[in-house]
Amino acid sequence: MTILIMLFSVILSALIQGAIPEFTALGQARVPLLIGAVIYYALNRESEHMVLCAFLAGLLQDGLSMMPMGCSVLCFCVIGYIAGKFRGIVDAGAWITPVAFGGLAAFVSTLLFYGVLAREGMIHCSFWWALLKALGAGLLGLVSTPIIFRILGRMEGATLRYGRS
């Protein structure tokens, strides 16, 4: 059931992330829903689930954008792996955890993408613009990740209760 919820949530996140317009004042950053889902599975579930989620989220992001295939997969796996190292150390239920991890992950992933894409000559923007975009993504990650945690937590809780009954 966890896998089904993950599939559903990642596909829905990708669709919503693509449909919500970018925020021009935040360096045209988009709401980082996919990385939020990866962080959820990294902090709340086994490594297998995190890897599967990172893979799926990365494939969708690469497939639906002009990124080279595998770029987001690598980035999401690395960030998920690092976040997973904190599982058991931090309290995933505390409100500050998704805020901090979501914001940081969105910020770091945006800078990672900038590094890769600028090096490949696929984008033409200055570092300052990328920094603004990363800060914007971080800010949006601060807000969106706790919501993702809450929704996914509720969905998994509900299916667990349903399974028991």
């Binding site: 449909a19 970018e22 988009r30 969708l60 992001q61 639906l64 954008s65 990124m67 984008i123 993504a137």
Partner: peptide, 12 residues
């Protein structure tokens, strides 16, 4: 059918 690149790096 869709506005903008999901990764936000390109305007498509």
């Amino acid at each position: 059918i869709g506005r903008g690149d999901i990764s936000s790096w390109w305007q498509t």
